[in-house]
Design a protein around this nucleic acid. Structure first.
Lengths: 210, 210
DNA sequence: TTGACGTCCAACCAACCAGTTGGATACCTT
DNA sequence: AAGGTATCCAACTGGTTGGTTGGACGTCAA
């Protein structure tokens, strides 16, 4: 049978091949999008025959979906948002992640552009994921979950991700010169925006003076 | 000669053909991006022969650049930012524009994704455009132009554009149900963020109560 | 009318690309 | 050792794509 533990070695090499393909696909898709990505390039970069893509994933599109799903899991694990976390610091962490690893933003944008308004592949799992984040933020605020809190989360993510999403615009607005401390400014921007929502006397020391 | 006023009628039909192509291209590029767009579809949608695209614009890529340039001009004209304008209201106006006309965000995203970090076609013109916006914002704040002000502008645009940039995420975070008043929440979010920067006693009546 | 100029188009092309096929090779089971 | 199973791959294919070509048509100047 396929799932026999006996098939360990064979399955192992298959698994690594699959991983190599996923890694290569991530680069290619992040760089060129779904339409622009070339299956042959992915195979070549992975050092694997192109046919394996269809054997393992079925189609270019399904490969893309798996790539995004995997990348999204990594983001969720790398930048958690727990009850009590300072929302402004969360913006900083997300900003750092995207700055260090722009691949994920690019994948998300390609995906959003591609799927427009239709449902995404694993819509449900993502929905619960965001639900949990909204709940955590609400708990931080000491309020119930509400559209306000959800909008607030969206705003925080917007601040953190936008510079990586449109690097051209960021560069043009900030000026090409020596990069000023954008991160700090965004964190402060967020801190002021949520200040009123936080329970009194939050731990945030820096801030309000211009 | 080409530019003879005598050739008025002929040139006129040519100009309309060109406009038809630009309009069709805008739809196609906004929907599918540079790689995904099909030259034949653009020609068909415009009711014009494909060859005209090459006659007028030279290449698919150059057509795309013209489309973006034209669309960007429209945005700049439709949503100005003048000294004294309430920054929070600016967020609302930009949000409205993108919501009503998502084509431009999509074009910008495709463009940013495509050009990555390299220089854009008309980099200089855009730079001065943003420069002017930053100057206007600084004047509103009653301060000099600075990285802080520039970062602030970037943050404001982020808030206004992000929901249109990643509609999937917005839908998942806000819940599929009856759309809550996201616009109002974002405007308030922005209002709190810039409150300290505004000269004392700004006209903003609504706001600070949670 | 004639000739020049510019617009327009049907048909064409060579390159490219996602997806397939048929068989070679390695491993595990009995 | 033989048979079954799964991985892997070189070569192929049929449809598509960006871009081109050669000429028809209409307009204006002389």
């Amino acid at each position: 049978m396929t799932q026999d533990p006996a098939a360990a070695t064979a399955t192992a090499t298959a698994a690594t091949t699959k991983q190599r393909l996923l890694a290569a696909a991530r680069e290619e898709f992040a760089a060129h999008g779904i339409a622009g990505a070339r299956v042959d390039r992915i195979a070549e970069l992975a050092g694997v025959n192109k046919e394996r893509i269809y054997g393992y994933f079925g189609s270019k599109q399904k490969l893309f979906d798996q790539v995004v799903s995997q990348a999204l899991d990594e983001l969720a694990e790398a930048v958690p948002l727990r009850p009590g976390d300072d929302p402004a610091e969360y913006v900083g962490r997300v900003y750092d992640f995207h700055r260090a690893n722009p691949v994920l933003v690019r994948l998300s944008l390609w995906e959003g552009l591609h799927y427009r308004d239709e449902a995404l592949p694993d819509e449900e799992r993502r929905a619960t994921h965001y639900e949990r984040k909204v709940a955590a933020l609400a708990e931080t605020f000491g309020t119930e979950v509400s559209p306000e809190v959800a909008s607030c989360l969206l705003g925080l993510i917007a601040l953190a991700a936008w510079p990586s999403a449109v690097p051209q615009m960021s560069r043009l607005i900030l000026g090409a010169g020596p990069r000023p401390d954008l991160r700090a400014h965004l964190v402060e921007f967020a801190r002021r925006a949520v200040a009123d929502s936080l329970p009194a006397g939050g731990g945030a020391g820096t801030g309000a003076e211009a």
